[in-house]
Amino acid sequence: MNHRTMLFLVCALCCAALTSQTMAGGPYTLRLGLQQGKTYLYADVVHADVTQEMMGQEMKSATVSTSLSRFVVEKAGADGISAITSLDSMTVSVKNARMDTTMVMPDLLGKRSRLVLSPLGRVLSKAVIDTIGKAGSPMRGASARDAMRVHIFPEAPVAVGGTWSGVIADTNEAMGGKMVTASTLTYTLAGEEQKGGRACVKIAYTGTIVVEGKGSMMGAEIFTEGKGTVSGVLYFDPAAGVTVADESKMETDMTAAITGAQNMTMPISTVGSSARTLRAVVDTAP
């Protein structure tokens, strides 16, 4: 029995995770204002239609990931915001010619990472607190994806119509190794809008994504590379300094190459969308 189906599933899951990782956003007057002692809960829905090709044969997979993330601010000040991130829930549905499955990811839940952000949104540090068990290994990177959900804000105040740019680079665990993602985004402050009961600024963004990675699974070396485009809209509450919603679309062309017992070079195209919504801000339980 060959294991191409299994590899395809792993690739599809990683592409789905990438879809969420590469959706990022940014602020208005414009600083992150997350407060110490508060917990921010976000709902995320990520769609990824993945097409993998081999000699003209195409394998298609539609993946939907639904999750609830927790962002517990343990310290906030002018030099940065330190928060503990974790997942409260996560389900991943995969549909393709061979399977129609919904997977709950219990091994990912509650696994904490510490993320330190500058007020301008830059990731100052990121560290895994709770190691994820083997069963959740294909989606390990997902636990740290909050790092890529940040957006870069401009140093100077920006008016409607104003633009700025930012580069967001991140390294995550995927396919038994590391995947480095770099997004170069251009932001435009498009206007003001009520969202989720809050007065928000609407920030449109577009950009490119470059991905490179190397890993090892099932006795094989796995290489990934690719690039893509992303566009989206970020709704940011400038008074509270908090992201209220972030909706984006992306398209990537990736290559997964395998050497070892099996040799493969698989083009993988992904068309995806991501929606993040602030569900609640609550006092952190003592």
């Binding site: 081999m54 000699m55 490179e212 190397k214 070396e221 290489f223 590379e225 690039k227 893509g228 485009t229 566009s231 679309k249 992306m250 398209e251 062309d253 290559t255 190459a257 395998i258 050497t259 040799n263 493969m264 070079t265 083009p267 195209s269 068309v271």
Partner: peptide
Amino acid sequence: SHMSLAPRGFPWPSLSRIIPKDALPMT
């Protein structure tokens, strides 16, 4: 319907920086 118009074709290792040549599949 597509954001990218870049030519994709097949990801030939000889056109890539990191994909090794021995990753070419046997068919």
